[in-house]
Design a protein around this nucleic acid. Sequence first.
DNA 1: GTAAACTCTATACCTAGTATAGAGTCAAGC
DNA 2: GCTTGACTCTATACTAGGTATAGAGTTTAC
Lengths: 129, 129
Amino acid sequence: MKIGDVAKTTGCSVQTIRFYERKGLLPLVDRSIGNYRVYDTATIQQLQFVKQCRSLGMSTAEVKTLLDIKSRPEQSCANINTLVVKHLQDVVIRIQELQALKLSLENMASTCDDEKTVRDCGILNYLQA
Amino acid sequence: MKIGDVAKTTGCSVQTIRFYERKGLLPLVDRSIGNYRVYDTATIQQLQFVKQCRSLGMSTAEVKTLLDIKSRPEQSCANINTLVVKHLQDVVIRIQELQALKLSLENMASTCDDEKTVRDCGILNYLQA
DNA sequence: GTAAACTCTATACCTAGTATAGAGTCAAGC
DNA sequence: GCTTGACTCTATACTAGGTATAGAGTTTAC
């Protein structure tokens, strides 16, 4: 399978696939005579794994860590749990931050309507306070 | 006031202040004989305005737009409201995305504990499905 | 045989800063 | 007057996670 086909199959762009390879999230695959990348099933599955992790908001560093752990199937999976729980905590914190932000913005938005001049704008007043 | 004092006063770093100047969020201020930036009160207030907007999650482009509008005090402030409401909507959408993400992560985390091997890890299984 | 579609590498761009290097400036102490 | 340390200057490189190009080579269809 060539990179364009892999892109269609997985929904990742061709550039993104090459980017993941450079980042070490995908192995250096074999090349054809014309120097085209040739993908095997295992690598395509790994790309789907990476994509899934990324869609769950993990950083490439986190994904790389997971891939490392994944390559040692006999060991304990405790550090996988740790990583996921840590990531989950980060998401919870981010949600809290954004909810606080939302309150501030709603607060601010309520101080003005469309029928004032810039000089008398409640929002601008809020922002300057 | 020199840039270091402005940094202390506002809580922005010296580099960030210069960065904002380059981005057009701050004017090109006067220079001393030794080519040091000399800040007046209005510019310091503008920096505080920028900082406040940024702390509300606005992009520098949004802040620049606000500054532009702010400079025409006689006009209607309708587009300020529009900008803020749009930004608020973005925040709400982001919160929803993160909440969906949180559910997925919790779901995934619940499929495994620390007492399995990597081979049998519920989380990895989930990520590969 | 040629044209279109594909792939290759390398490089630049994006956001919102942060972190350096190397040079110049200023104020205090001696 | 001279040195030392703290400050400032510009320019450049780096971060994450890609995206977008340029210019060259390859493959495929007709």
